[in-house]
Amino acid sequence: MQNLMDQEARRFGAVNWMGLYTLARRETLRFMAVWTQTLLAPLVTAGLFLLIFNIAIGPSRSDVMGVPFLTFLAPGIMMMTVIQNAFANTSSSMVISKVQGNIVDTLMPPLSPLEILLGYLAGGIARGFLIAVVVATALALVLGIVPQNPLIAMIFVVLGGAFMGALGLFAGIFANKFDQMAAITNFIVTPLAFLSGTFYSVEALPPVLYRLSHANPVFYLIDGLRYGMIGVSDSSPYLGMLICTAATLVVGALTWQMLRTGYRLKA
């Protein structure tokens, strides 16, 4: 009885702050324990993208939106790296727990569906934010790219981590096997990232593709970070904030509903 009273006391009202902190800490330590794979490897991948594009078409490519092609490309590569890793953090954590059968360790404690959602999102956002810091530092040292609007850049990094973290948790709950998770990554996440203005300005697209690009929340994430980093963008960063926030809330609400009902989580 005393333990139960202590547990309730730690909720500080309607929120189990101790449980939420513990889950967020677990999700953060999970990727920090293998930082060479989760932080160093994405930096190397981003560097390889920039190197290959620079060698292949950089010297012959004219300026894009008034800036050198490599400078235009760098923020897109940075955001693509952030969102892919935020997605991977939440989706892999959920799928591994389900496959190994220890998801009960997360569902049994006195955590509400919203607290579970926020705990997982904290890990995805933290991983995405740390990767952004690492890549931004490398861009400053190697290319001399310093954020023109640091606050806006940080907001879009957090929005990117939150949106793709929520999408990753949604996919992780939906998938029961690793091959299902791979299919979601290959046929949904990768196209969203690559067909969103990462390597080009959407102003150069035909009208149909132009409109489709503007229906993709990832486009606004990349475009907003590009504005924060180099001061140019295809659309208003403030419109992008609204759209990305709305998209995050929608995906988060759907994921919360899955957690609340135990969809594919409870036998």
Rank of each mutant, 00 (worst) to 15 (best):
L4D: 14
N216I: 07
Q37N: 12
P59M: 01
K177Y: 14
A56L: 05
Q84W: 09
I173E: 03
M181N: 06
T45S: 04
I83W: 09
A253M: 11
V158R: 01
I116L: 15
L40T: 08
L20S: 05
G123E: 04
M164I: 07
V44P: 07
L73M: 04
L169A: 09
L50G: 00
V67A: 00
G58F: 03
G224N: 05
R226V: 04
V82H: 05
Q180D: 13
I173V: 12
W17T: 04
L209W: 09
G13S: 05
G76F: 10
Q7A: 14
I243Y: 05
I145G: 09
T90I: 10
A24R: 09
V64T: 00
L167V: 13
G224A: 08
R61N: 12
K266G: 01
G124S: 07
Q180F: 12
I188L: 14
R11C: 14
S235F: 08
A171K: 02
F87D: 10
A166I: 10
F53I: 04
T185M: 14
L192K: 06
F199N: 10
N149L: 13
F87A: 01
V44H: 08
M5P: 00
A247R: 00
A33F: 02
K266A: 14
L29D: 05
R26D: 07
Y120A: 10
I152Y: 01
G160F: 10
T198S: 03
L43Q: 09
L205Y: 00
F178N: 07
L114T: 13
V146W: 15
M79E: 11
A74R: 09
N3E: 15
Q7H: 01
T28W: 09
S233W: 03
L225I: 04
V104P: 02
I222P: 09
I125D: 11
M241D: 01
G124V: 10
Y200P: 11
V64G: 04
S93Y: 11
M78W: 07
F163I: 06
E8G: 02
N216V: 13
S97G: 11
R127N: 05
L212M: 04
F69T: 10
I152Q: 02
F219T: 03
I77N: 10
R25E: 13
G161M: 11
G160K: 08
K98P: 07
M32A: 11
Y263I: 13
D223P: 06
V99G: 02
R10N: 14
G13V: 04
A204D: 03
I152T: 13
V135W: 07
L40Q: 00
G76D: 06
I125N: 04
L20G: 02
